[in-house]
Structures are given as C-alpha cells and as structure tokens.
Write a protein that binds this DNA or RNA. Sequence first.
RNA 1: GCCCACGUAGCUCAGGGGUAGAGCACUUCCUUGGUAAGGAAGAGGUCAUCGGUUCAAAUCCGAUCGUGGGCUCCA
Length: 639
Amino acid sequence: MPLISLPDGSQRQFDQPVSVLAIAQDIGPGLARATLAAEVNGKLVDASYVVAEDASIAIVTPKDPKGLEVIRHSTAHLLAQAVKQLYPSAQVTIGPVIEDGFYYDFAFERAFTPEDLQAIEARMTELVEQDLVVSRRVMARDDAVAHFQAMGEEYKAKIIGDIPQGDEISLYGQGDFEDLCRGPHVPRTGVLGAFKLMKVAGAYWKGKSENEMLQRIYGTAWPDKKSLNAYLTRLAEAEKRDHRRIGQKLDLFSLQEEAGGGLVFWHPKGARIRRAIEDFWRDRHVAAGYELLYTPHIALQTLWDTSGHTDFYRESMYRPMEEDNQLYQLKPMNCPFHVLIYKNTLRSYRELPMRWAELGTVYRHEMSGALHGLMRVRGFTQDDAHVFCTEAQIEAEILEILDLTLDILGSFGFENYEIVLSTRPEKSVGSDEIWDKATGALRAALQNRGLSYGVDEGGGAFYGPKIDIKIEDAIGRSWQCSTVQLDFNLPERFGMEYVADDGSRRRPIMIHRALLGSLERFFGILVEHYEGRFPLWLAPVQAVVLNITDRQADYAVKIADSLRKQGFRMESDLRNEKIGYKIREHTIQRIPYLLVVGDKEMESGLVAVRTREGDDLGQMSVEALAQRLQSESASRGRN
RNA sequence: GCCCACGUAGCUCAGGGGUAGAGCACUUCCUUGGUAAGGAAGAGGUCAUCGGUUCAAAUCCGAUCGUGGGCUCCA
C-alpha cells in the first residue's frame, strides 16, 4: 500500500505496488508520455521501476537535466546497437555521457570512416522508428561474465570483473541488443531522435596510453530537434570565433611550417595588440609594487638539476645543447632564475616581501599531437612573477595578488570567474604545520575578498597549495589562465635564506603566480572572446581615414597624421576605390572607427565618423573625435 | 608520442595516372564614385618534402614535416 509523496508536497495512495510509469499515468497522460525515469527517494531509476513501499518520487522528464542525461546515455546505447548490427565484429566497451553529448568506444579491426558514421546514424534513426521497448534485468556476477564472454565481448566481461563484489549487475536490452549498464534508461527508443554523430577519434582503453587504441564515436543528443539545432548553431558560432581563423583574416599572427610546430610569429597588427597588453601589464605591476626582471633564455643544465626540473620535467624540456664541454638547457620556466637573483646577496627580513615579475619566454617540447593554434604552443611568454615573503606575510600577499589579478582580468572584459583552491596531495614536501598554515592563508584571503570558490582536495602540487582562477568568455566557455601557487620546495632546494629580526637565518616562502598564463594563449582567448572586435585600447588600428576622391587625399593624410601624433594608431586608405568598397573592407577588418572625408568635410574641416558596428556618428571636429577616442580608450571598455 | 583525416596560387577551395582550375586578394588601365563588393586586362603554382611503382605521378604506395579532430600529457 505505497503512499507516494510528490515534489509539490501532494501525496497519492496506491492499493498495490505500482510502477513509476503508472504513477505518472495517474497524475496525467501528458506526464506519462514525457516520463523518462524517476528519482525514488533520491535514487535515479527506470520508468518501469516498481514502487512497493512509501516513497517520495520525482518524475524525470526531458526538461530535467537528469532527463537529458538519461537521453544521452540511452542514445549512446542506441549507437552501440546500430554499430553491432552493421559491424558485428566490433566489440562494445564503454559509452558515457559527457558535456553536450556522449561517446562510445568500440574495439574494431579498422577505423570508422565518415561514411560509416552516416550509415550508423541512419540505422539509429531506424531503431528509433521501431520504437523498441527498453527492458532491464539483473544477473549474477559470474553469470554476467560468462554471458558476455560467450558473446565475444571481452571488454564487457573485463568491466564486470572490475565492479565491486555485491553490487547488482544490471543489463539493458532493446530489440536484439543488450548491454551492461547501471542505467537508468528511457522506456522506449521512440523517445530519442534529436541526436547527431559528430566525429570519430582514437582513444586508449581505460585512457592509458600503453593500452590498445579503441575507436571512439562522439555524438550529441537533446530532448528535441530545436535544442539540437540550437546546439549546432552554437558550435558554428564558436567556430566563427576561432582565433586561428580570425588571426589569419586580420593578419595578427602565424605559425610557420618552415620554423617548426608550436612557434608563434606575431605580425605587425598582432604585435601592436601584444604591446598594448604588455604596457598595461607592466604599468599595473609597477603600481602594485613589483620590480620587473629580465633573465636569459638558456642556462647550464646543472641549474635545472638543482631546481629538480631535469628529474620531474625532463620529457617536456628541449634536449640540452653542448658548448665548451658543458650542457646548456633552454628554459622551460623562469623560477630558478629569479631564485638566483634572490640568492645573489644576503637578504634581510626588512626587504620582504619582494615581488619580482617578468614577461619570460620559455620553451617546452609539448607533444606534437597536443599543439593547438595559440592555445598550446612550444615557445611562449609567461607573465610570471615570484613573491618571496615570510610565513606571516602569506595572507596579505595573496590578497594583493588576488586584487591585482581581478583588476587586470576585468580590464580585459573578463568579469566572471571560477576559483578553485587545491590542497595537499598524497605525495608532497613540507611539514604538516606549514601546509596547514599556508592553506589556511589562501582560504582566508579568498574569504576576505568574499570570493566563492571550490576546493580540490589533494589537487595541489607536491610543493604547495594553490589557487586557480578560470575566466568565462563571451560565449560562456571557461579558460584557466591565472594560478597562484605556494612553493615550499624551491627555497629548500636552493637553500634560500633571509636574516630574521632575531639574527637567525630563515627560509622564505616562494609564491609563483601568473595572471594571464601565457601571452600567446591569452591573446588567442582574447581574439575569441571579442571575436576580433578588440576594444579601442587594444585595437591594432583604432581608426582609418577614407577619402572619397583623390581631391581629399592630402586632407585625409593630414587628419591621420594629426591623430597619430596624439598617440592614436591610425591608417589612411587613399586607394582609388569607391567609398562603399573601402567601408566594407575596413569593417571586415574590425577597425573601430572609419573616418570618411569628402569635399564637404574638407571645406568644413571636419570628419564624418562611422563605427565598425555601422553607426553613423555624423560629422565632428578632429579635436572632438580625439577626445572621444581618448576617453573610450582609457575606460578599457568598462563603463 | 598514439589513432584518424588533411596538405593544390597570398587566402578559401575544386580537380585528379597523360601540358594545372575558380572566386577573392595582387598588378596595370578605365572610372573620381558619399557609407558593406564599379569595369577590363594581366601576373601568379616543383600540386608540403624526400623516396618508390609506372612509358608517364599533383594524382597510386611509403617515409618525413606540418595542420586539424581526439587520446595521452599539461608540477
């Protein structure tokens, strides 16, 4: 006689055990049709699940995030069924739900082709039309192993072997296909349909590179066609913002095959933006009490032995080069160099904290397959800084760093952050006391500024806890750029000291921090964030003067020169082309202001101003325009 | 590093065992036109590199390099 409590607080009494579906039916036929699964006392179950006792129940429909997960998971099964029908020798492995969709890994003697994907997708659609009933059954563990082995599904058998003893082994069947699965699943294949197979890729069994390579098929699935199309549109939007594409069109940077992979060439326009970024970065750092350093690009390998990099980081370092019977190492990091400067003289507690920053270019031999536009490169410039301080100064220094970070990121239009505090991992150096104190200081600093943050327990580096800050871009993607890490290791390895007020020698705390991460990567993110429409203070060309006929050529040049002398980045386009053509071209180049000069402007001594958004601001004097540019530039796009 | 795909003019791409194609960009000429593409002509390519198969290779095969999507990695 189950008494069912619903989320709205209402209750329903049933004479005998009832299925979730029957309960939904009892509430309304519309709900029954939409029922995918249910949460019974907080546990996610199938629609066919029978409730025998009193319970609180929430029906899961496609509108529910959990419903969407069920749809994606069931679509993954649908994919597996279609693959097994078309390619019986393929073995199924795992098929989890991921962000925006799902994938399924198969062991198959060859790679799936795009044509295969089309065939599989078509078969999936047929299976949806057949509206197969999805049913669940439970099997004893040994029986299940034997069952899958008999079917030739070695991987499934292995997976069951890894399921803890005592756990229920459930199988889901639909038509001729049955798969090991925890569930839950949709009641019928007919409720699926808004899906698309996206791509094939290789993936290692269990994600380990020493294991065999499987064929992974990625797909996306949604409650309805409208959501699917919205998602596909979103993907197309993201592709339009691709920094590689925009970088090419706006002539910002390139990667050169003749130079090697992962090495960035900044073209004049990209370099202008970079300089604007760097100038701003330096000014803010000096204002925040940092000293700016320059250090070499190579150093004796023995330095990297001391720092421990040749032990921990060898595979990412370029091979050393030999000179004068000594090995020199291209630097993958700047830290040891800053440490050397620290150690150049005896330090007093009176000097601490010391804040040293450097735009330091480093080289890391990233795996060829990992390279990606500007986002993952082999030579890049870190906006690196190291703060050396006493234990007592940690919290105050972290506060300073957080303030500087949020100020700088905000200036680039990033106002939403996701902050994670990572604590001590199992393998680590340093005493319990220092870890507790340091982690507490990080936490206190975050709380002091009222910042909400997550905690990644055990996610810190072996040498100290850290705070990572992810920024959210214009289309909601998040990127990790900033990191603040405490380091108990390098000061130890290098024997760093300072003389305390009691005359004793103490070890300083070292804080590593980068705000932008790598200039190359941050630039790539900026390009995508602004879709190449850089705010005025960053725009490589802030305004271009366009003459209508040759008669105004001298006047156009005069206007451009005048503004250039006032510090604006100007161009003039005197080509013998129609004004419409020039406007189109420079609008596509995303130049913020187009200054049109014809006979009328020349006579009145004004310019006609048009923005890249297409707004006509009318005529104005050069002085008025300069003032406008000045204040817009100074605001950095903030109101 | 591993799996798959791709590499043709500055760019975007078509073609494909028998003398290399388009659009845009570029150059020259005509046009001097008021807010997103005026017209004509011309120039431009060892078809990524190296090797193999073939009477003949841009095309087929292999290796290398690079690019893309994943995996892995990312103190």
